[in-house]
Amino acid sequence: MPLIALVGLVVALTVADPDFLTLRSLTAVSRTAAPLIVLAAGATLIVLCGGIDLSIAALASLSTVLLALWLPDLGGLATPVVIAVAAAIGAVQGLAHVLLRIPSFIVTLGGMSILSAVALVVSGAGTVRVVDDSTVKWLELYVAGYVPMSAAMALLVVALIAAVVKATPLHSWISATGYSESAARLAGTPVDLVKIGAFCVSGACAGFAAVMLVSRQFSGGPTMADNLLLPAVAAIVVGGTAITGGHGSLWRSLAGALVVTLLRVGLPIVGVPSAYEQILYGVIIVVAVALTLDWSKVSIIK
């Protein structure tokens, strides 16, 4: 289904603007999509567990600031350190969710607010320029001459997480947690660990998305990734992952992220001002959830 939407969009955009289907614009699209794909991939794990992570964009913004601040001192180490810190912040939110028994929606809503404020304070409420970007510039290279490194890395992240989940009992643990947490718990699956792990990976993904953003913009900013929250959630639901948990996959979110990016790129092509973008995301999320909900109902009754 998301694949059909994807192909349909490419065709429609090509009709609207014959220049669209060029190597140049495709590379541009895939490069734009890369951070979104990574963000959505991490958050998909949490949605599969039946929760949601609203803090990913704010965490990514904070991570761009931290990376920009730490690059001069840490150099090449800055990237792994930032990802590790982001993962730790994710895990803390997961712990709060599990131990305090607060809905993930509330924990990450609070987290979003806190992390945004921390980013503002740490950055002095302004953009932090990166003077020497030699250690993050590799993401701007091309694989085999054409494929942007960032897009390849995004693909790699999705493939890696998806493969680990698929090949281990994590697959059934995550689905069981998402479909029916009480049944999963009574079957003796490590529900709490699975959830904390999902938050941790989601945090790490936000950190990695931040590295991509910094490498492209040569700076970090306290609100740099904030406008990615809605697209990321849209990517997950457009991909067909059930917002109620259990049903879905990371690959679906990858396709969803490409759809969302194409829509974003395509709006100006068909003459819609980009100010309308947010309306589009809002509509997409509601419609996509309505569609996926209906589907899962049908499959349960049958």
Partner: peptide
């Protein structure tokens, strides 16, 4: 049980 999951997955959950 976890209704939408398969017999195999339900059986091997533990």
């Amino acid at each position: 049980m976890v209704g939408p999951m398969s017999v195999a997955e339900n059986m091997t959950l533990t």
